[in-house]
Design a protein around this nucleic acid. Sequence first.
DNA 1: ATATTTTTTTAGGTAAACCAAAATTATTTT
DNA 2: AAAATAATTTTGGTTTACCTAAAAAAATAT
Lengths: 222, 222
Amino acid sequence: MQTISTAEENYLKAIFTISEKEGKAAATNAIATALSTTAASVTDMLKRLAEKNLIAYEKYRGVLLTPAGERLATFLIRKHRLWEVFLVEKLGFSWDEVHDLAEQLEHIHGDALVERLDDFLGRPRFDPHGDPIPDAEGRWTYRSQLLLGALDAGKRGVITGVEDHSPAFLQYLDHMGLVLGAGITVLERFAYDQSLRVRADDGTERVLSEKVSQNLYVKPTV
Amino acid sequence: MQTISTAEENYLKAIFTISEKEGKAAATNAIATALSTTAASVTDMLKRLAEKNLIAYEKYRGVLLTPAGERLATFLIRKHRLWEVFLVEKLGFSWDEVHDLAEQLEHIHGDALVERLDDFLGRPRFDPHGDPIPDAEGRWTYRSQLLLGALDAGKRGVITGVEDHSPAFLQYLDHMGLVLGAGITVLERFAYDQSLRVRADDGTERVLSEKVSQNLYVKPTV
DNA sequence: ATATTTTTTTAGGTAAACCAAAATTATTTT
DNA sequence: AAAATAATTTTGGTTTACCTAAAAAAATAT
């Protein structure tokens, strides 16, 4: 069984994320940007990953993960998100503090560790940002959610996740009481700047910018 | 602030352990053996660690840690042992399974993580093998313990730790019911092979070899 | 005190993971 | 369809952390 380095794991995760979002092969430059490295370094690594049959790579055509590569990437995301749950639920970190630590912890190797951690945490299906956690077989939980910006006036939804994971956005949400699970009703949409007047379940009313409404996911309630 | 690689951290820990046990500067060969590498590689690394002022190195004279190096080594041991407590107390691993995982986890960087983990675990002073855990300021807890082999016939002690940390020994102890905190009374010492006849607090009597009695620590009870 | 053995260092080399600059290929514009 | 631009790869280099074999120093034996 071949071993995979931390650097290789980071490439697999980046390729997974980019090709998933773009719906096509990940470009060298996109990977370089995601990993804060140069295109030359990426080409270097792609050759090695192709050699290990973790990616399907054709020069100048971008890359896709092979089933083996996708399995590894999925498992890395599983580990990252389980550790995030641990950091928030057990150690008391806030959701804007856990990314860098989880980025390190996801590279710890040990199948038994992951499964025991999962049990210890009560087999959570979503991480502290509302992102789904693949199960031990790599299966994803799908959930019907839409951006708050897509919710019609008069409709209510429950906050289920974020698109922007930056600490600045997460801290803003904390400040506004917009936490996962909170109910929110769209009262009015201002055509001028696409801002929304919303009401929390406790009756508090606020105006949220388009930028906020485009980065917050809600599940509509009936 | 300079960064320290995982390889460098492993050298610091090895130097700490060897120089502490031997009571003198750690020899190149001893470090090579401890890290399963070659003397040439060790010399290589010693130059780099000396450059970073983490060790006091004189060619052909062995190495000692500087205060900065000792601080780092102590903190690594703190992290290693806290993670071992987590793995045993929270995730349900047994004491013979946790070393390799803790060996990875000790290299996770994050002061807040360590302090929160320490709190979460109830600020334990000893790890699952009875080894002391340095506190956040790097202070060690000392404990009066001696090898079971040094306990006179007729005396009773409580098991406080192990010298040999190998899974084989730990599993043997489990099998014999010789867990941390268990009481044990030496009934008789056989001069021929230095084996001991002992009695557990539940009345069970056993004979333990010299090898066992030289690898098990007890705290004498009055 | 010299010879032998052991330990340590040096010399020269490797692979992984990065880089800048130059060359090549693909894409877009005209 | 050519020219210009953008994306990608190649070339030649770096550092880290290893290695083997040879040389040098220290320790031990005679």
